[in-house]
Design a protein around this nucleic acid. Sequence first.
RNA 1: GCGGGUGUGGCGGAAUUGGUAGACGCGCCAGAUUUAGGUUCUGGUAUCGAGAGAUGUGGAAGUUCGAGUCUUCUCACCCGUACCA
Length: 862
Amino acid sequence: MSRYNAAAVEPKWQAAWDAADIYTASKMDASKPSYYALEMFPYPSGKIHMGHVRNYAMGDVIARYKLAQGYRVLHPMGWDAFGMPAENAAMEHGVHPKGWTYENIDAMRAPLKRLGFALDWSREFATCDVAYYKQQQAIFVAFFENGLVYRKKAKVNWDPVDMTVLANEQVIDGKGWRSGAEIETRELDQWFFKITQYADELYYGLDALERWPDKVVTMQKNWIGRSEGLQFKFSFTKPVDSFDGIEVYTTRPDTIYGASFVALAYDHPLIKALTPDNADLQNFAKACEKMGNTAEAIEKAEKLGVDTGLRVQHPLDDSITLPVYAANFVLMGYGTGAVFGCPAHDQRDLDFARKYNLSVTPVVLPTGTKEENFLIENEAYTGPGTLFNSREFNGMDVSQSIGAAIETFENLGLGARQVQYRLRDWGVSRQRYWGAPIPIIYCEDTSCGEGGAVPVPVKDLPVELPADVVFEPDNPGNPLERHPTWKNVNCPNCGKPARRETDTLDTFADSSWYFARFAGGQGDGLPDDKPFDKEQASKWLPVDQYIGGVEHAVLHLLYARFFTRGLRDCGLLDLPSGEPFAGLFTQGMVTHETYKNENGDWVNPDDIADGKQISNGQAITVGAIEKMSKSKKNVVDPNEIIAGYGADVARWFVLSDSPPERDVEWTESGVIGAWRFANKVWDMVAETSDHQNPMSVASGADGDALALRKFAHKVAERVTTGIEGFRFNTSVSAIYELTNAIRKYKTNDAARAEALGILIRMITPFMPHLAEECWSHMGGDGLVSVAAWPVADPDLLREDNVTLPVQVNGKRRSEITVAKNADKQSCEALAMADEKVIASIGDKAVRKVIVVPGRIINIVVS
RNA sequence: GCGGGUGUGGCGGAAUUGGUAGACGCGCCAGAUUUAGGUUCUGGUAUCGAGAGAUGUGGAAGUUCGAGUCUUCUCACCCGUACCA
């Protein structure tokens, strides 16, 4: 037999696809229905890894399947190319971020092409292309003009050594992840996108996303954190300078009669006003600022506070007064930065009350509990129940009393219903070079523009990154800031001296609209005078199927949902729902065993033979199965797999066995299995020498030939539903079964040709090169990549006879074969006559016989 | 703590309206062919039992003629999140 030679076959068909130009959306018949398949575009680190292979292989199955079904498919590829690693490389190796990035892109494009994905490369771009960030700046200006961008002072994590702002994720135990320096909190002018303007829409829009994983929807809902409650004001018992009360927010206004104190954040304006004259508050503020914000620190942190000496009146009974505390568990960033404490029904408040000997008055009685038996000790009761100790609310159920309490406050003019969000506006200023410059000019005349901030007129865009910047490892900071001339400009408004904003945009902005630019191509290219063609983009969007890692469940996917709404409201995009991705799939990771030697060092699998490390002979221990990562040395390089086994084998492997949403473990034996399968398919086709048309239909077949046809059509049905349901592993196993069936069927006749034709077309989305080679060998017309998807013939799916299991008391004892439409009586008669059934029943009495036509027969005896 | 998810052979996993549990692949066992080297082919492979048979989907209970699937409780692991008022 002849071995399938992937190394020779794969480039041949890739060239054929290129020559026929079959994956370019603009070349496809515009009258066909359109389908937009997209995988999250890669960061050009320089190397593709197995995670990429799996991600793009999944998208490719969808794209090729839809192509075969007659859709006009857009399946583009590009590069998420701005970001820190390029600047780190610049500092460490003295290279320019731009050169480093474009070299990496070239290094990654080649293996992606070798994998044979059905990608439309005509729309390729990198987010660091001037043409791209020029349009991103235009979007920024449009957002600015539509009130979606503003500037404010904000607290940031400032690294005094690297001289930059760090994201929260980059602060580890209060120290900078790179410099190790103690991080300071600074107030800096920062640009913000007004994502909170869409908080409600972003929240409720999630409910319409039926083809999103529940998990992601839940995570986004939690992130947006919508809550409904009451905001009202406590009045002081004695006047306080320049404050006429304390605004608090609560979701439990029903527990107002259980209130025993009011607590404010240490940085609440009222506390700040009191602090200069109060040593206790000064110490307290220092302690609060020091307190870590790691999960562990918060867990352990004791509920602490300082009595301010101020007292407020109970809003519904001014004879009751409550003490006012500064407390470390109240956050200025949420609600009003002030709360009332109801210790009986909130654990945090209870801990605090016990510490400072404040009263605990229960006001919610759990259903079925007697008042005299209900005691709050060290556990607050947060469950449902009936109000008591609450005057006008007594006897109400918690669920109705919340609304009643809000109404009471509103009627008395004391407060109002209020919706709160956890979501904050998106700070986009980064003190970095390798990003899109924020297109703002600060005029020396602060009456110009908005406080001197003037957006760069669209005609003056792009604000291009200067090439001549210096990266000094000892002087990190922002090279744009250090550039001798770049920031010096004249105000576009009034011509007075001005300076450029030297901050660049958060790179999450880059990935928030790239899918629209892909979709908004015109003719052969992407427009240079606008972000995207409105008509084209509106036609393709939303993306029909988006695929990527679950690590983007919140930030990227939320920012993109914000951007499409902003683009819509700026009139740039016609997308009423505002939703960029109609279907989302989050795929699992590619994992691999890890290995350690006697020193406890990670060992590369290549360096292991017979349980010993080749380079030094040390014994190897097999560790946990983990995500492939350089640090754990458990990475398998896709290039080596492609070179050794071929792209098809790599693709087939990452899609078989594990369900797509779960992790798949890369194993050598699994790869060999995939490789053997590819060879089996090729052998079957290769021995078919008389070139029967793979599109043929063996309509006259009977006997074994008919059985094979029926089976092939059944498998076609299963493979199709597997792909539709994102269960590629089940499609793969169905394909295996068909392969086994064809191999057992020895006759080289029309039925076999038909079954092979179905098989080849079904493996096309998974192993397109092998499929083309087989198709060509069989004498199929044109390219199988554009051949029609096999549709099961309903006549062949229908079975005339069925085998029914016969149970006695729920245990399977025998089986009978009956006509599909046999009536209950005849089924029962046949079952009762079965020898094994008779033996099982013995001398027991038959109580009941259940016949489920086409399914099962169960005989109940006793 | 809260939210979400997952638990099925030696392993990855099938079983999508409650109806033959273990498809398919890997591994393993036996045989055949070939033989130097990622062969190929045939058969077998949940567990206990010689056998008939019994048991079996993390555990316990329940609903049902019938439960991997539904209900309640419970255990383990994974992911997300964190003083959100």
